[in-house]
Computed example of a mutant assay.
Amino acid sequence: MPLDDALGPDPVDVAIGARMRLRRKSLGISQGVLSERVGVSFQQIQKYERGANRVSGSMLVAIAAALDTTVGWLVGEEGGLSDAADEIVGALAITGAVDLLEAFAAIPRASARAALVTLAQEMADR
């Protein structure tokens, strides 16, 4: 099947990028630090995480080592993620999603968190 850039990133590349971002953020390291560890620019890491560029096999191995995980986990073959969990990982790949989640978790009042959820749902419906 021919690849067509007009169709956007391949869902597999997006899923791999989302797992990269999730793991990187959970370790508390920046794209710059990861890029230094694997020998590419931080812009390249951004492209990998968005799924805009495919990760070669050798780079996937290097990234997995730099993130102290396995290639199997990065490609979704380990860890037993359900379809729902895969959907969540995909949503976390959206720029700003992890930042929003961290800010949400830092809101001390449950009523304020509920109000924010209501606001987001209203904005999504429009």
Rank of each mutant, 00 (worst) to 15 (best):
A65D: 10
G90I: 04
R24C: 14
L119F: 15
A6G: 02
I63M: 09
A66L: 03
G17T: 09
A110R: 09
D13R: 09
A124I: 13
A93L: 07
D4Q: 06
L34V: 04
A105G: 02
P108I: 06
Q121D: 14
I45L: 11
M20V: 15
S111W: 02
L60D: 03
V75Q: 00
L100S: 13
V12G: 03
L92K: 11
E78S: 05
P2T: 10
D10M: 05
L34G: 03
A18R: 05
Y48P: 05
K25H: 13
Q121W: 02
S82W: 00
L101H: 08
G79K: 01
L101I: 11
R19L: 10
V14Y: 01
S58V: 14
D83A: 05
G51V: 06
L67Y: 01
S26G: 11
A65L: 05
Q46N: 10
A110G: 12
M123E: 09
A120F: 13
S26I: 09
V89E: 07
A120V: 15
V14D: 04
K47F: 13
A112Q: 10
D5V: 05
Y48H: 09
A52T: 12
F42N: 04
R113D: 07
E102P: 03
R50F: 06
V61T: 13
A52Q: 11
G96F: 07
A65I: 05
G72H: 00
A115I: 09
K25L: 14
L74V: 04
S56N: 11
L92N: 06
S82H: 01
D68R: 03
L119M: 15
D5M: 06
A64D: 03
E102F: 05
A105D: 01
V117M: 09
A114W: 01
L74P: 00
R37V: 02
A93V: 04
S30M: 10
A15M: 07
D5N: 09
V89S: 05
A64L: 07
M123S: 12
D99M: 09
Q44F: 15
G28E: 13
I29C: 09
L7C: 05
R50H: 12
D86V: 06
L27M: 14
R19M: 07
Q121I: 13
V117T: 15
R19V: 12
V61L: 09
T95V: 07
R24G: 11
E49D: 13
G32F: 08
P9R: 04
L60A: 06
T70Y: 01
R21D: 03
L7V: 04
A85R: 06
R113N: 08
D99E: 15
W73I: 00
A120T: 14
L92G: 11
I29A: 12
N53E: 13
N53W: 12
V75P: 00
A106Q: 11
G79V: 01
L81Q: 00
D125L: 14
A115C: 08
G8W: 03
V14P: 04
F42I: 04
G72Y: 00
A91K: 12
A64G: 03
G8H: 05
G76S: 01
D13Y: 03
R113M: 08
G79Y: 00
G57T: 14
F42C: 03
R37K: 15
D68V: 02
Q46H: 14
G28Q: 08
E122V: 15
L60K: 02
R113S: 08
L81N: 00
A105L: 04
L92C: 14
V71K: 04
R19F: 05
A112V: 15
V38D: 01
V71G: 01
Q46A: 13
Q31D: 05
A15C: 02
A85G: 02
A64C: 04
